[in-house]
């Protein structure tokens, strides 16, 4: 790999991506087209996030990669290794120690700081795509700020199910102008998008789009007065660390209906356990061992 440039991409490609990032920051929530390159990993596996990270990394950075909130999922491991090798950056699993965090599907639980950059991997950047498959049409809708179709869709959910039936990739409106796809994060994470001290960058490689949220941006999840947005999660504490404020994965433990709930953010859970917080199942296990 040593034959490749710092952070893999050639300088001209990085410049092109950097220009797109700056325009994205200048027009928060607007999807900037960019000439996404073919990366040595498949489309759909984080090529957008990887290109944004590659254009953003400096040798001084500490880089963290999570997938589903976890540092040890195979794709997170693979992307982390890629940058260790091509950019020689230090890597970390600690949210607070990281300067750039590349993520797929989650926002870390620990509050982010001004010195951090969160890079999202985005599969379908267009929030209107599932209502209107044509790019030529959705581009017009954004330009005219014509978001009625989205409200109609959400309202149809309410009339059919009594609630908005979107659980992840829940659309938001940025600075009162652009409707934006926050990437497939659970809607539990949506409130963390707003007023965030960190820079948030979104990269969609296959769809060739970059967009951004500057720090402290105004980000509102779409809803209705009589059906306000609700950030929901499993109604349990974490069985390992006891956290009540974190997003939980449900893990099936046997074939007799046994299950447990654990933090999806592995660093958050580990940190809490190290601080002495104990969840019900971990406590029971330790008691059993004693």
């Amino acid at each position: 790999m040593s034959d490749y440039n710092f952070a893999y991409l050639d300088e001209q490609t990085k410049r092109m991506i950097r220009r797109a990032i700056l325009k994205g920051l200048a027009v928060p929530g607007y999807q900037v087209p960019f000439a996404s390159r073919e990366m040595p990993m498949p489309y759909g596996w984080g090529t957008g996030g990887v290109q944004v990270s590659a254009a953003t990394l400096t040798p001084e950075d500490r880089f963290k990669v999570i997938d589903q909130g976890a540092d040890d999922t195979t794709n997170a491991v693979s992307i982390r290794k890629f940058f260790e090798r091509t950019a020689g950056v230090e890597v970390t699993e600690e949210t607070e120690a990281a300067t750039i965090i590349q993520t797929r599907h989650r926002i870390p639980e620990a509050p982010l700081s001004e010195d951090q950059i969160l890079v999202y991997q985005v599969p379908i950047p267009e929030p209107l795509r599932f209502l209107e498959p044509r790019e030529t049409e959705t581009r017009k809708m954004h330009s005219l700020e014509e978001y009625g179709l989205m409200h109609v869709k959400l309202y149809e959910d309410i009339s059919q199910h009594g609630a908005i039936a979107t659980a992840y990739a829940y659309p938001v409106k940025v600075e009162g102008r652009y409707v934006m796809d926050p990437s497939p994060i659970p809607k539990f994470d949506n409130p963390k998008l707003a007023d965030c001290p960190a820079i948030q960058l979104f990269g969609a490689g296959r769809e060739q789009r970059i967009y951004a949220l500057p720090p402290y941006s105004d980000v509102v999840s779409l809803d209705f007065e009589d059906h306000p947005f609700e950030a929901s999660k499993a109604d349990h504490p974490c069985d390992l660390c006891g956290a009540r404020d974190s997003y939980l994965d449900e893990v099936i433990t046997d074939d007799r209906g046994g299950r447990m709930f654990v933090c999806s953010d592995t660093d958050y859970c580990r940190t809490r356990q190290a601080q002495g917080h104990l969840g019900a199942q971990l406590a029971a296990k330790q008691e059993g061992a004693a």
Partner: peptide, 20 residues
Amino acid sequence: DAPVDAARAFRAAMNAMARP
């Protein structure tokens, strides 16, 4: 050292644009 110097310069430029 273009790749590294440009990366650092971009970080400063991005921070500036992100935090007017």
